[in-house]
Amino acid sequence: MTLARPPYDPELQAFLDTMLAQPNRPFNLTTIAARREEQAAVQPTIDEILRDTGLEHVELAVPGPDGAPDVTLSVVRHPDRPAPTACVYHIHGGGMIMGNRHSGAQAFPGWVERYGVTIVSVEYRLAPEHPHPAPVEDCYAGLRWVADHAAELGIDPARILIAGGSAGGGLAAATALLARDRGGPALIGQLLLCPMLDDRDATVSTRQFDGSGLWHREDNIIGWTALLGDAKGTPDVSPYAAPARATDLGGLPPAFIDCGSAEVFRDEAVDYASRIWAAGGQAELHIWSGGFHGFAMAEHTAVARAARAAIESWLSRVLT
């Protein structure tokens, strides 16, 4: 039986049905390589994104987790910044299985211009080749290095904000938990955009969006299975893999959490914010009416514009 579910916003519905319509084809762990290639082929390069912006891009190879390869960081900043600047530590999305550190980089120039920040985007290893804890430990190692080398990067170590969307939002939340539990680095905020937080597939929203939307229930199960293997959904899953598993959400930096009302991640986003509040923490939660997962891509629509304005409002309050 199909559950009743919130309808998509009319403008978003039209985009989903036409601009984002994809050929129906199998998506599973064996087709991930092909999907990654497709995505890489259409993703603009960082040079294309930064062309005519006057911003500079530096790549750094920094030590990875113990016994693991180096982690590559992309640093995007203004060449003439009055150091030290605040830092947005960015973790890309892609369901734990796709994407690279330049996925979503279209937002970088605007953030640098608007807030004068330095952006550091981390290249973490992807599942299923590299299951948990590889992705989150790479993210943490990069963050640790940035905080330890803040002076040479021209970054104010007291003003590092962690940010990510979708799987990147889940990894950002997990990295914030690691930073809390390992005694640093200190973060001034966590920007969690439609974050992927819960491996258990047990919410109403996941059942409502079974087979509908850009990242629907089956896709989500594939992503979590790639990350966790057989452990997915069992009591053994670490909160650093699935932050919704954390029993203690106290002592975290202020969170901005958003999500569409019409997507799998809605209920886990609401629950995460509620439990941060319950623990005495600060969170700002926006559930956008009729938003599908990734609705911000339809950037001209009224809902995407409102969502962007809310993010910008929060960033300007946190970064100043």
């Binding site: 994809q22 497709e38 082929a41 259409v42 603009p44 279209q106 891509m297 339809a298």
Partner: peptide, 9 residues
């Protein structure tokens, strides 16, 4: 970007 993204897909 969206159009390019879609065109590629």
């Amino acid at each position: 970007e969206l159009v390019e993204h879609v065109a590629g897909l």
